[in-house]
């Protein structure tokens, strides 16, 4: 095997090449693209999708899918915002929201792992019921006007770096460490690679499946906090179709849908491509009527390049 053949380079670095090409093209087309404020803006915009995509990477690595992240995000946001309005201390309200996200994720995990329901179906059920619960909780109205301390989560800065970017950074680094440096991470790859063999070397695959869905729910809730803080409002209709952007980022990043192959480095690039694309379409004043079509075409193209 030739390690340096064009094909293998494209497969390994195709997504990075696509990203660089896209950046070069956009910087030629718009002189605002490569400015510091715009770059910070792009980073800020990808944090929500980026954080969700970390959980989604775990889920897809074990050859499952989580369609419910957008709804979980909405429900946890609503509950947290309501707790804040009822005067609960900020850290406690956040903790309750995160715990609820983890719980909803764990429910997905248990139903999938123990009762052998395909995760597509399990999480489709959760997508609908969590959304329904969010609408019921607020009778369809948004909850607005949140304490300043909480809003710092979305608008604060540390040494010029926006708080959401910082949080997303920490999530990526932690997620990467767990995946590449720990026993749990190794088990996730093993389960995705060959669940039968994983069981025969003593891995409790039901437990790890449940944990992975739990993490996906937890991170969806965390992303919800940031979104709520930035908008100063929790909406029961927030996060619709967020699962699709997250899945797109993971798959663009080269993680295999059949599990066991891929990782967070690719997902980061995938999220960046989607973010830069959104940003570029804005900068170039492309009508929002074309936006989705162009975005879809570019994603398909990028996938083609690094699949070949």
């Amino acid at each position: 095997m030739n390690r340096y053949s064009l094909g293998s380079i494209l497969q390994r670095f195709g997504i990075a090449i696509s990203f660089v090409l896209l950046c070069v093209a956009l910087s030629l087309l718009s002189d605002r693209f490569l400015t510091l404020p715009n770059i910070v803006n792009v980073l800020r915009q990808i944090t929500i999708n980026g954080i969700i995509a970390v959980g989604m990477t775990y889920v897809i690595l074990i050859a499952e899918i989580d369609l419910s992240v957008g709804s979980v995000l909405a429900l946890t946001s609503i509950v947290t915002a309501d707790m804040l309005q009822k005067g609960l201390p900020i850290p406690l309200a956040i903790l309750i929201g995160l715990a609820l996200g983890a719980l909803l994720g764990a429910v997905n995990g248990v139903i999938t792992a123990k009762f052998r329901v395909p995760s597509f179906i399990t999480t489709l059920g959760m997508l609908t019921s969590a959304r329904g619960a969010a609408l019921l909780y607020t009778e369809g109205r948004p909850i607005t006007g949140l304490p300043d301390g909480f809003r710092a989560l979305g608008r604060g800065e540390v040494a010029g770096i926006p708080a959401p970017v910082l949080i997303a950074g920490v999530v990526f680094v932690l997620g990467w460490l767990i995946l590449k440096r720990t026993q749990a991470g190794e088990y996730i790859y093993a389960i995705g690679n060959n669940p039968t063999a994983a069981r025969l070397v003593g891995i409790s695959i039901d437990r790890y499946r449940t944990l992975v869905f739990l993490v996906a729910g937890l991170l969806a809730a965390l992303a919800g906090m940031i979104l709520t803080a930035r908008l100063n409002s929790a909406q029961p209709t927030a996060g619709v179709a967020f699962e699709l952007d997250a899945i797109a980022a993971v798959v663009l990043g080269g993680t295999s849908f059949s599990g066991g192959v891929g990782g967070l480095g690719g997902t980061l690039l995938g999220a960046l491509i989607i973010g830069v694309l959104d940003n570029g379409l804005n900068l170039l004043n492309i009508s929002s009527l074309y936006e989705q079509l162009v975005k879809g075409a570019v994603i398909a193209l990028a996938l083609l390049i690094h699949r070949k």
Binding site: T182, E186, Y189, A190, N193, N194, T196, A197, A198, L200
Partner: peptide, 24 residues
């Protein structure tokens, strides 16, 4: 191949997978 190996993982990963507790 069906029950023993993790084909898309390395020789090292396949060799130590059953004793990670001890090696962590």
């Amino acid at each position: 191949k069906g029950q023993g190996l993790f084909l898309q993982m390395t020789v090292r990963q396949n060799t130590v997978i059953a004793r990670l507790k001890e090696l962590s």
